[in-house]
Nucleic acid binder design. Structure first.
Length: 384
DNA sequence: AAAACATTCAACCGCAGAAGC
DNA sequence: TGCTTCTGCGGTTGAATGTTT
């Protein structure tokens, strides 16, 4: 590890415990220059040389990105933003930078702090593990059922269980909020009453609600969303407020919990879906491909039942010639008929399945690279 | 009024990858 | 090719502030 120059005491850089920035530093001419010309061509090391008292470039960048930028919002987080953060966290984990790109005016530090101080606690109080987004009861049950073969590494297990028990202590000793579907279930989705009660979750489908569905799926099946779901979650979010949510067929009966249409309704609606609502269809198709052993949506009366029916299982026994399929070969963009091509989903699913053949680490790295190839927008510079 | 406790959030730290030489 | 520097990210810390006792 090369020690950054800013950490070299010989350079007399201002650092150390809470060496707070004075107002005159914040208003330094260099930051004024950045305000006018942007940061795309800025070299933070040279920026630091221009700021009065010596500050390392890293320090300047941090200050600029978090506090000096003019587009930052000082308003408290709205409920919609909180919902988005939770869902994105479920989809992509603690990648605050990625999450911050979806929330204009918010910095990753803002979001990280808000998560650690508010949302994390909020989830814990509802009996949901903020790390896995699964109910504590399910985590403990899973842990009790594994019979000596831990799904966690032996080094992680004590720490992880310790986290759960600590969060459990924070949870109130009262019954989980009842649901209108299955009172016996303590699923994470059932605990998200504050989400379902949100005025934002109207009967009209929105990208956020679509993520809700995947979120519920994730909470009941796997420790983290599979890559395909992550890609789709990000795709949905990046559509933002521009997505047309008004063109959904009237046949969409809302799910009792998340305001989702029944799988049957969606299944019946495929042929009449408008292109603008194809994202929803894409996900539905992807799930059908991924859960190829699951009952068809026609057999289930609600999304919850459908999703609880069978956990996600990667396709097995893929033909060898499919293993070379690149995830970047398929696109989530709309097709003329508004429905994602099934063979493209198949290609993605087989890629995920093929990853079993090599090492887990290699597969993860490969999939991560593919994700950014598929969504180059995630790597774009935010507009300041 | 003051001490104790809890919460917030700006700043710092360490790591890792990219870029430059 | 290897070393150095730059940049970005996520996690942690602790001073400041607010709330409770």
């Amino acid at each position: 590890m090369v020690k950054p120059t800013c950490c070299d005491n010989k350079l007399n850089m201002r650092k150390g415990l809470r060496a707070s920035w004075a107002e005159d530093e914040k208003d330094a001419s260099t930051f004024s220059y950045l305000s006018k010309h942007g940061t795309t061509t800025a070299h933070w090391s040279s920026v630091s040389r221009k700021t009065g008292p010596k500050r390392c470039g890293k320090n300047c960048r941090l200050k600029w990105n978090n506090y000096v930028r003019s587009d930052l919002s000082n308003e408290s987080f709205t409920q919609q933003e909180e919902e988005l953060i939770i869902k994105l966290h479920a989809a992509v984990g603690s990648r605050w930078g990625l999450i911050a790109h979806q929330l204009p005016g918010r910095t990753e530090t803002d979001i990280k702090n808000h998560w650690n101080t508010k949302l994390r606690k909020k989830l814990s109080e509802m009996g949901i593990d903020p790390i896995t987004h699964k109910p504590f009861s399910q985590i403990l049950a899973d842990y009790g059922n594994i019979g000596g073969v831990s799904r966690f590494s032996s080094s992680d297990t004590p720490k992880y269980i310790g986290t759960i028990t600590r969060d459990l202590k924070k949870a109130p000793n009262k019954p989980q909020p009842s649901t209108t579907t299955s009172p016996s279930s303590s699923s994470a989705s059932a605990s998200y009453t504050f989400l379902s009660n949100s005025p934002l979750l109207s009967h009209t489908m929105s990208p956020v609600q679509n993520i809700n569905k995947m979120y519920a799926n994730n909470a009941n099946t796997s420790q983290s969303l599979d890559l395909l779901s992550q890609l789709q979650a990000i795709s949905l979010v990046t559509q933002g407020p521009n997505s047309d949510t008004t063109s959904l067929p009237s046949s969409y009966n809302t799910d009792a919990f998340f305001g989702l249409p029944s799988p049957k309704a969606v299944s019946l609606s495929h042929s009449s879906m408008s292109p603008s609502s194809s994202t929803y269809t894409n996900i539905n198709n992807a799930e059908k491909v991924a859960n190829n052993n699951s009952p068809s949506p026609d057999q289930c009366s609600s999304w919850r039942d459908f999703l609880l029916e069978e956990p996600f299982k990667p396709a097995q026994n893929q033909a060898p010639d499919q293993q070379g399929t690149n995830l970047a070969d398929f696109s989530l963009t709309d097709h003329d008929d508004g429905v994602m091509q099934c063979n493209e989903i198949q290609a993605a699913a087989s890629t995920l399945a093929a990853s079993d053949a090599s090492s887990f680490l290699d597969a993860m790295l490969h999939q991560d690279a593919d994700m950014f190839l598929t969504f180059p927008g995630l790597m774009e510079e935010p507009l300041y």
